[in-house]
Design a protein around this nucleic acid. Structure first.
Lengths: 346, 346
DNA sequence: ATATTTTGGGCAAATGTTTGCATTAATAAA
DNA sequence: TTTATTAATGCAAACATTTGCCCAAAATAT
């Protein structure tokens, strides 16, 4: 009949019960080598029996280790980011870390605020995908100066070098475009993303480079720059594309939403894909497999990117061999997935 | 030239600098009414100047408030869940809480383990969507007995009452089916989800009830139960459906992936949608708008569900008027979104 | 038998903040 | 002027755990 209120039991209670010191309990629980197996068992059994829970806050407070990492993404409910987060959480969990997630909503102000809060929370590191609005990187530089391990992915700071995981957007776009050329396209247009973002600039450059390397002309009126690569924007673009004379014979889109919209509009106009116009997207979203014809696209390795980011971060947190590393860049291989929308013509 | 190492400055440092006591600093920072505006400004300015950060861990340790809530979802990279999480994070952030997210991967073992960890972490509440594997609810009952506020969503415990946010799956399915009936379908099949999960049973029941209420026969061979409502399973189902004689004139699917697969297979077979067979899905995934014909479906209010869950949870955490509430159930209105796949026949 | 090492634990400090209560200063009432 | 009141701040304890250092006993070596 424990009548002594319902206050949670602490390490001291255990100590008292077992006639041991608090330090021994602490060490036993932490599987410290200096504690005998016998006492360890005694302790864990008693802990179990009494329903003891180690107060993680007190523990963090004393040890200065929170075992938590902060994640900042523009939004969680975007396929790409939710997959990256999934990869991060997976790896982090296996390594004994948990993730605290925030959405910047692409707002610079939010981003700064969140970073500030995360520092107060004493996360041991952060994984960040920059807000679209972020053009000034001072807050990030300051953050990095604090020596807190940070890893960026996808949208990364452009004015200085830092830890990051990206895919080779240039090369991926190059490959995608070259693929179109190899199946016989000679007049390829590109639906591009917001040019204030590095990765979309890189994709555009990759497109151009592929054309040049195959001695095809780069025509400015074949480049359609969108604001956010939405499905709706893609539709509008396609309408404009269809006014071209002659019609292009290939379209490379900077993401799968716009590519899907191109496919749909062409279908509606009874333009044969890929015979008349071949289409290639980017990111391998679920729709890519579902639309008809299915979409050739680039596997952007979202989950792996998350895992790689978590791995890099946790290495920097734990392994002091990494202390002398100024910054580390990992570029993931992408993969061209050829589907019906660019199945070899003829 | 601060040479005294790089140890973070504390409230005491501030106190010393300003010739005040630590308690005053603490109160000033917390905007306590008993502190004069003048000193508050003094303190915040100095804090700013010195780059002071309030140690949130120490604060939590002392105050017993972590301002954190735990979220357990089967997986983050599923449209529905990522949208729910987005809604939760949004509301939580506005209320001064942050979210710690875990994926159970639909594993019962993981779910238990995560709950255990979250309790140690002293989150102030949890929002949970049960793992598919979870059939035994003892760990949840025990959890709830601790008085920690918990809110479930989507997949919720079935053997006892508790706080939860759901949509009315039965009614939604009823409406979807009735919609098909109203546009003239008389021979409707249902692609159902895993019947070990309550929401999918409810959708099946809603389907049946709609048929009955319109004096249409409920035929067991018109019900196709899948394991996880994947796109692939949907394809297989559709093949079987097409062996029916006579062909059905309507299909109601328990999610949009299977509905999309139905649409695609029918397209391939040159079966006109909706003229020959009308199709209705569930959840309003992005594909629903993109496939051709676009998909009639049910808006499942994922984001709102997240917001509602967060709101309910935070109320239970903060407002002691809620202490006398044994449990609270909120059922969200859904919405039938009529698109081309069930545009009135004829 | 003594000296030395190993093994298993205990002591007590330290961590940064919050908070109930006490105290002082300032103002108002008598 | 004295007293009561209010406003603003200080004191010190408490929070649960970890960890460097110390110590006793047991085991091993000499």
């Amino acid at each position: 009949m424990n009548r002594k209120k319902t206050t949670p039991i602490t390490i001291k209670d255990l100590a008292q019960e077992l006639n041991l010191s608090a330090s021994t309990i602490s060490r036993a629980l932490a599987d410290h080598p200096k504690i005998s197996q016998a006492t360890k068992k005694l302790v864990t059994d008693k802990a179990e029996q009494l329903g003891f829970r180690l107060n993680a806050i007190a523990s963090s407070f004393r040890s200065k280790k929170t075992k938590s990492i902060g994640i900042i993404v523009p939004r969680i409910d975007i396929d790409f980011h939710s997959r990256v987060i999934s990869g991060i959480e997976d790896y982090a969990y296996k390594s004994g870390y948990h993730v605290i997630i925030f959405q910047s909503k692409d707002s610079y102000k939010m981003e700064k605020e969140i970073i500030h809060n995360l520092q107060n929370m004493m996360v041991e590191g952060m994984i960040i995908c920059l807000a679209m609005e972020t053009k000034n990187f001072d807050h990030l530089k300051k953050l990095i100066k604090t020596k807190l391990p940070i890893v960026f992915y996808d949208r990364t700071p452009e004015t200085f070098d830092t830890n990051k995981i990206t895919i080779n957007d240039f090369e991926s776009a190059f490959n995608a475009t070259e693929h179109l050329i190899k199946i016989g396209c000679k007049n390829i247009v590109h639906v591009a993303g917001n040019q204030s973002t590095g990765i979309f600039r890189a994709r555009l450059e990759g497109y151009k480079a592929a054309l040049k390397s195959h001695h095809l002309p780069v025509q400015e009126d074949h480049i359609y720059v969108t604001h956010n690569l939405s499905y709706q924007e893609g539709m509008a673009c396609t309408e404009k594309i269809l006014e071209l004379d002659p019609l292009p014979d290939g379209v490379f889109c900077a993401n799968d939403y716009t590519a899907a919209s191109v496919v749909q509009v062409l279908n509606k106009r009874k333009i044969k894909i890929p015979e008349q116009i071949a289409v290639v997207g980017f990111s391998d979203y679920p729709i890519a497999q579902i639309i008809v014809p299915s979409l050739t696209t680039i596997n952007d390795r979202a989950v792996q990117m998350g895992e790689a980011a978590a791995k890099m971060l946790i290495q920097h947190i734990q392994d002091h061999d990494f202390d002398i590393i100024d910054h580390q860049v990992i570029t993931l291989k992408t993969e061209l997935i050829v589907r019906e929308s660019s199945a070899r013509k003829t």
